[in-house]
Design a protein around this nucleic acid. Structure first.
Length: 229
DNA sequence: AACGCAATCAACCGCCTCAAA
DNA sequence: ATTTGAGGCGGTTGATTGCGT
């Protein structure tokens, strides 16, 4: 970046009159100085504290995507590339989650790298990947009345549910992971007569009343990452 | 050297979630 | 219960750079 462009003034929306476009060296220095002096700081205060005619979002973005000294601005290694491909297979376009697994890399950089380098290769990656990315379905008897799921080696179940209402959930099953505050959906194969199938990512234990049966589904999940190659 | 096209990536936009008022 | 402001996210844009002809 030569910084030779002349940023235009921001239009409507938040900060009328604020500069837009490429950041100059002087602006970068002002922002750096401000963050170093006041960190942690509210981004809404930064433009005034730094003496910048920029909106808070522009300041934040410039810092988190470019000026933050913890950012690795070198080219992506083969290992990083491989990890991005695997994580994208698992997580989709959730760039911030992917970035969380690559120290020093920003979500924006990973997104850009994916869009310019890896997305085209995606086809080839998919062609190489004939194995399913989800564990194979586990067969459950029709009369199961509850289900517990836990990570292998952990005593505490990660999820617990009673059998869903058949009328409402004959196509799929929703399990509320209250510990992590999100819901997970599992497909059910309702074409089976005496049994039902579901894809699980955890060791699962189903039961009918007092009786319980452990289903070995975790092994397939553990092998997942090495399958994506 | 000049041109056109493709690739790259910094920055913006709109939307969402969450917390405080 | 509703509004407002802040932070954060993913999609997209557009200026710049690189490359082939």
């Amino acid at each position: 970046n030569t910084g030779t462009t002349s940023p235009t003034s921001a239009g409507s929306g938040g900060s009328p009159g604020a500069r837009k476009g490429q950041w100059s060296k002087e602006e970068d220095n002002l922002l750096r100085k401000c963050i170093n002096q006041y960190n942690p700081v509210k981004w809404s205060h930064v433009p005034k504290l730094a003496g910048l005619n920029r909106c808070r979002k522009s300041c934040r973005l410039r810092w988190v995507n470019y000026l933050d000294p913890s950012i690795n601005r070198g080219s992506f290694s083969e290992d990083e590339e491989d990890l991005i491909i695997r994580l994208h297979k698992l997580l989709g376009n959730r760039w911030s989650l992917i970035a969380g697994r690559l120290p020093g890399r920003t979500a924006n950089d990973i997104k850009n790298y994916w869009n310019s380098h890896l997305s085209k290769r995606k086809v080839n990656v998919e062609q190489r990947t004939l194995k399913p990315i989800r564990p194979q379905p586990v067969t459950l008897p029709r009369n199961w009345s509850w289900l517990r799921m836990k990570k292998q080696g952990e005593a505490e179940p990660k999820m617990e549910t009673k059998v869903p209402d058949e009328e409402e959930h004959d196509q799929w099953l929703m399990i509320n992971d209250s510990k992590h505050g999100h819901e997970n959906y599992y497909t059910m194969n309702d074409q089976m007569d005496s049994n039902q199938q579901a894809d699980f990512g955890f060791e699962c234990i189903y039961g009918v009343g007092e009786e319980e049966t452990t289903v070995d589904a975790i092994l397939q999940w553990d092998g997942l990452l090495s399958d994506i190659k």
